[in-house]
């Protein structure tokens, strides 16, 4: 057989590509449920990490994690328009509500708003009975959408923890946002200024100066080499907190 004729080379290339594609498609499809389950467990772990129920790097079996999550975390669907928690709705219903809302909206701008109207907040109970509110945060970094959780203490104003668990930022630069040591710097920051106005948490370019009250209260050190990621985080944290403002105000009372 002449293995160097153009026809043969072309045929061989196509055969190899089709075979490998079929193999990859089969693997991806058959493993999809397991992968989704693993990603969901990872998400739950991050909720608990933000709430301080789980330390970064702590090793626990899957059963322990699921039990801890079920015991301590209650997920509620919050309507960000009036800030009220919906009764009788499970966390899984939020997507459906948003889709229905978006389908009902006529104006494209309303549609966009309706898509994120209902959000899931996780309420965590601490060992001493204290409450923690874990808010989902997400938005654009440099390359990708970053997903994370921001946990606020019982006063709904002081940061108790933060995690970023899904992103496509450059490893070593923007990807450092998932570094537990960096996330630890967020703890104790206040999202409100002295006059109770929403400021959010600001990721500063460079290091913060603890001598400046504003730095100490609201800002965290920037990640070097990742200015756009940091600015993105500052922006979407503020946006998401604005969306939850009414809900948080109702909790503060």
């Amino acid at each position: 057989m002449n293995t160097s004729s153009n026809g043969y080379v072309l045929g061989f290339a196509v055969t190899v590509c089709v075979t490998i594609s079929a193999m990859l498609a089969a693997t991806a499809t058959s493993l999809a449920p397991e992968q989704a389950a693993a990603a969901e467990l990872d998400r739950q772990k991050n909720v608990m990490m933000a709430a301080g129920l789980l330390k970064a790097g702590e090793v626990k079996s899957k059963e322990e994690l699921v039990k801890l999550y079920n015991d301590r975390i209650k997920e509620v669907v919050v309507d960000t328009v009036d800030g009220k928690a919906l009764d009788g709705k499970a966390a899984g219903d939020a997507d459906k509500l948003n889709q229905d809302g978006a389908a009902a909206a006529k104006d494209p701008a309303d549609k966009k708003k309706a898509e994120t109207r209902y959000r899931v907040v996780a309420q965590a109970k601490g060992d001493d009975g204290s409450s923690t509110y874990v808010l989902p945060i997400s938005g654009k970094g440099l390359w990708s959408t970053i997903y994370g959780y921001l946990a606020l203490g019982g006063d709904a104003a002081t940061v108790k923890g933060v995690t970023f668990y899904k992103h496509g930022e450059t490893p070593g630069l923007g990807g450092e946002c998932e570094n537990p040591e960096w996330c630890a710097k967020w703890v104790g920051k206040s999202i409100l200024d002295e006059s109770k106005q929403l400021v959010g948490v600001i990721v500063k370019k460079g290091s913060i100066d603890p001598a400046i009250p504003e730095d100490k209260r609201h800002k965290v050190d920037g990640l070097s080499g990742a200015t756009i990621t940091c600015n993105g985080i500052t922006k979407f944290v503020k946006n998401d907190l604005t969306a939850f403002d009414k809900y948080l105000a109702s909790v503060r009372k």
Binding site: I20, M23, L24, T27, L31, Q35, A38, D42
Partner: peptide, 18 residues
């Protein structure tokens, strides 16, 4: 071929060692 095998390995890691 190498890429195919690597992606399969990566898929298994994602499913069982997230």
């Amino acid at each position: 071929v190498v890429s195919g095998v690597v992606i399969v390995f990566d898929q298994f890691l994602k499913a069982y060692m997230f």
